[in-house]
């Protein structure tokens, strides 16, 4: 790993990130395999934080594994499971172990996960978490107490370009910018025209935008996402394209679509990079990159 993620962002290179999910349990083999597969192929690797409120091996543990294998991790931090003390303490640990990129998230609702009986903390929200990191960098904790030793993070957040209604969401985006977010990874986008409109707006702010690319693996999945997942819109022509794929060929079609989108985003310099989410198909990321000509 040559440059750090922050330097890469600043360098103006078209940045590529991807993400992996830690296992449910202590068998880490598959996660190690994904890390080794992707470390050299992407500029940084997100490790999800109990995504969809499903209890798993922690993001911090996954990031350590990325680091130990020579990669550049992005620590995902949700506000759902930890109070202020726990969040700050995890950040201190992360920094001392060379984990310098943090993606600040609210976190999914407890009700969607596998611990429906648990309490969602949400003592901080994503904007407040971004500001908390600023505090740490000023050697202060949220209690106003002095800290020994420095921290310096590259702070990220998420935004949903297709949010409906978009106004309150874009308002929050601006609050995140005010709170010091340096990069944004977006919710999955599939409609380049809509995304261009979002970028026309987002370009007005001094932040880097990485377009979210979620691999479509079947027409059914595409239809499900556009109908049920908040903030995701899959145009009908993509759904049709997936249905027209020969039997057993939908995954390859999805890879082709993802590659084509990335290539288009890069060619027209629509945004500053992409964040590839190949949920449960991490193996396909190198193929997507190849299809994109990267």
């Amino acid at each position: 790993m040559g440059m750090k993620f922050k330097q890469l962002l600043d360098s103006g290179k078209f940045v590529v990130t991807a993400e992996i999910a830690p296992p449910k349990g202590t068998d880490l083999e598959q996660m190690f395999h994904h890390i080794e597969l992707l470390n050299d192929k992407v500029d940084a690797l997100n490790v999800t934080d109990h995504q969809s409120s499903v209890m798993r091996f922690p993001s911090l543990g996954g990031c350590l594994a990325v680091k130990e294998r020579g990669g550049e991790p992005i620590l995902q931090m949700t506000c759902r499971d930890r109070n202020q003390i726990a969040l700050q303490a995890d950040l201190l640990l992360a920094y001392t172990r060379g984990i310098e990129n943090v993606l600040c998230l609210t976190g999914d609702a407890m009700t969607v996960g596998d611990h429906k009986q648990a309490r969602g903390i949400f003592e901080l929200d994503s904007v407040q978490l971004l500001r908390a990191i600023d505090f740490l960098e000023e050697k202060k904790d949220l209690g106003g107490n002095a800290l020994n030793g420095e921290t310096a993070f590259c702070k990220g957040a998420i935004v949903t370009p297709e949010a409906d209604p978009w106004e309150p969401q874009y308002n929050k985006f601006e609050k995140k910018v005010d709170a010091g977010a340096e990069f944004f990874q977006t919710q999955a986008i599939y409609d380049l025209e809509n995304f261009t409109r979002f970028m026309d707006y987002a370009r007005g702010f001094p932040v880097k935008i990485l377009a979210g690319i979620v691999l479509l693996t079947s027409a059914r999945m595409a239809k499900y996402m556009t109908e049920n997942v908040p903030g995701i819109f899959v145009p009908q022509n993509l759904i049709d394209e997936l249905s027209s794929a020969p039997k057993g060929g939908a995954l390859n079609k999805g890879i082709e679509i993802a590659g084509r989108m990335i290539a288009a985003l890069k060619k027209d310099s629509l945004c500053d990079g992409v964040h590839i989410m190949a949920i449960n198909r991490e193996e396909a990321v190198p193929d997507i990159l190849e299809a994109a000509g990267l």
Binding site: R80, T106, G107, D108, A109, T111, V112, G120, F122, D125, S126, V127, Q128, I158, T160, A163, D164, P165, P168, Q169, N171, K172, K175, Q187, P230, G231
Partner: peptide, 18 residues
């Protein structure tokens, strides 16, 4: 979620993700 600073990414057509 008792958020203070604006909607989470779960808003869908003005409704709550839960």
């Amino acid at each position: 979620k008792g958020l203070l600073n604006g909607p989470c990414g779960g808003t869908d057509k003005g409704k709550c993700e839960v």
